[in-house]
Structure formats: structure tokens, C-alpha cells
Amino acid sequence: MRAFLKDNGLSVGFGLLFLATLVGQAISGHGSVNHDQLLHHGDPISLGHYVSSALFWADVMENWQSEYLQFTLYIFATIYLIQKGSNESKKPGDAGRESDEEQLVGAHAQADSPRWAQLGDLRTTIYSNSLLLVMTSIWIASWLAQSITGRIAYNADQLGHQSAPVSWLSYITTADFWNRTLQNWQSEFLAVGSMVILSVYLRQRGSPESKPVGAAHGATATEG
């Protein structure tokens, strides 16, 4: 168990943080919804009802999709774009998909390379893009889930105010859908841009997200 935690501290730690904050979101979201119910002279709903409602899941999904979009775009953009001096970037001149030799695929694979990296056929092409493929799929699926659950929550509000419910196609053109979407995207893009440019001049000793403290500001992609 100790060896397991030592080897997997990051994934275990963030997994537990995720679960704890999801529970926190459920409890506070439930309180917020019932406060609103009281204001509108409605009946309070149970916590169980709330966590299985579109209201809760629309909030969860709108945050998921923006996070996965952030990482998806970052993985893609860093193939081709460079930020001189940033640890988050490849070195100037390394932009692009790089050679098979550099990427250790096909004939250049090593004995311990993953099997699909060694094959040199379509499977190698798929495996070469598997991280971006999976992250993109999760982004699309969570954005779709946001739109489907967001529509139900939106329609509940519409009905509560004697207005007509909308179809899914109508919902994805509403200000509600785009407000939920863009308010999350803007913060993600700012955070990524900040991380890229702040890491040129600022340091965190011991973190692989930072250059070594004594590395020159102009040094790009130096492992911490």
C-alpha cells in the first residue's frame, strides 16, 4: 500500500480532491436550490433528488468540458506553437510532429516501447495521437452532456415562469448555453496563458512545472 501511494501520489491525491469537492458541490448546490425554492414558495427537494437531477449535472458538465477543452487545446497547440523561455513549451526549432527517430516509433522503437509504437502501421498512427483523441472525445462528450442537461434545467426554469420549453437545437443557440460555456472557457484560457508566460520569469523550486531556479530566463523547456 505504501509503495502504491508513493508511486501514484498525484493521481490518488487529485482523485480524492475531486471526490471531496464533488460532494461539497452537491451539498452547497442542494442548499442553494432549496433556498431558491423557498423564495419562490416551492417545496424543498431532497439531496438524493438533487444529485440525480439535470440541474446538478449541468453544473458538473459545464466545468468538465472546459477543463478537457483546455488540456486538449494545450496538447494540440504545443505541438506547433512555441513560447521562448517557457518550461511549458518545446524549444524554438522543435515545433511540429517531430521525426520517427525522435519519437521512438516504428524502426526507431526501443525494446521497452509500447507495442503499438513498435508496429509502424495504422495502430502506431492511432497510438501516436491517442492522448489527444481521448481528451477530445471527453471534451465533446462532456460538452454534449452539458447541452442536454442544461436544456432540462433551462426548461424547468421556463415552465416555472410560464414560458414555453425549448428543443435541444434551440437551446444550443440560447444565451444561457453560451454564457455557461464561455464563462468557463475564458478562465481556462487565461490560466493557461498565464502559466506559459509566468513560468518564463518565475520559478518554483522542486516543481517539474517550473524551470530550475537558476535557469536563465531565455532557457526554454529545461526540466525542473
Binding site: 508511486d7 439535470a54 458538465m61 442537461t149 436544456r151 432540462i152
Partner: peptide, 30 residues
């Protein structure tokens, strides 16, 4: 690498489960 593959599978399964449940909730119209 002890347990690392297990963590990989737990994450993927958890994400897939969450997405499926959310889409289900939206489709059922709860």
C-alpha cells in the same frame, strides 16, 4: 508502476461513468 494501470482504468471508467450518467439524466429529462 505498482497499481498505476489500476489508477488509469479507475480514472477512465469514472469519467465514462460520469458522462454516461449525465447524458442519461438529460435524456430522461429528470
Amino acid at each position: 508502476m505498482r497499481g498505476t494501470r489500476t489508477m488509469f482504468i479507475i480514472y477512465l471508467a469514472g469519467i465514462a461513468g460520469g458522462l454516461t450518467y449525465a447524458i442519461g439524466v438529460g435524456l430522461v429529462g429528470h
